[in-house]
Amino acid sequence: MRSEPEGEFHTVDVSRITSPARRAWLRTSDGVRIEANYQPCAAVPGTAAPSAGAVVLAHGFTGSVDRPAVRRAVAVLARRTAVISFSFRGHGRSGGRSTVGDREVLDLAAAVEWARALGHERVATVGFSMGGSIALRHAALYASGRGGRTEARSDAVAAVSAPARWYYRGTPSMRRVHWVVSRRLGRAVGRYGLGTRIDDRGWDPVPLSPVEAVPLIAPTPLLIVHGDRDPYFPLDHPRMLAAAGPAELWLERGMGHAENAADEALLARLADWLTDPRAAADGS
Results as ranks from 00 to 15, higher is better:
residue 1 M to Q: 01
residue 4 E to V: 15
residue 8 E to I: 11
residue 8 E to H: 12
residue 9 F to G: 14
residue 10 H to V: 12
residue 14 V to W: 09
residue 15 S to M: 12
residue 30 D to H: 13
residue 31 G to D: 02
residue 33 R to I: 09
residue 35 E to K: 03
residue 36 A to E: 01
residue 36 A to G: 01
residue 39 Q to Y: 14
residue 46 G to N: 00
residue 47 T to W: 11
residue 48 A to N: 07
residue 50 P to V: 07
residue 53 G to P: 04
residue 63 G to P: 02
residue 65 V to P: 08
residue 65 V to A: 13
residue 68 P to C: 13
residue 69 A to W: 03
residue 77 L to G: 01
residue 81 T to K: 04
residue 85 S to C: 14
residue 87 S to Q: 04
residue 91 H to N: 12
residue 94 S to E: 00
residue 104 E to H: 15
residue 104 E to Y: 14
residue 112 V to L: 11
residue 129 S to R: 01
residue 130 M to I: 06
residue 142 Y to L: 14
residue 143 A to Q: 09
residue 146 R to V: 12
residue 161 S to K: 00
residue 167 Y to H: 05
residue 167 Y to C: 00
residue 169 R to W: 09
residue 175 R to P: 01
residue 178 H to S: 06
residue 183 R to Y: 06
residue 184 R to H: 00
residue 188 A to V: 11
residue 191 R to F: 06
residue 192 Y to G: 06
residue 193 G to L: 05
residue 195 G to M: 08
residue 196 T to E: 11
residue 212 E to C: 08
residue 216 L to F: 04
residue 221 P to A: 03
residue 222 L to H: 02
residue 225 V to T: 01
residue 230 D to I: 03
residue 232 Y to G: 08
residue 235 L to V: 00
residue 235 L to Y: 06
residue 237 H to K: 07
residue 240 M to H: 04
residue 244 A to L: 03
residue 249 L to W: 07
residue 249 L to D: 03
residue 253 R to E: 14
residue 265 A to C: 04
residue 266 L to P: 11
residue 269 R to Y: 07
residue 274 L to D: 01
residue 277 P to W: 15
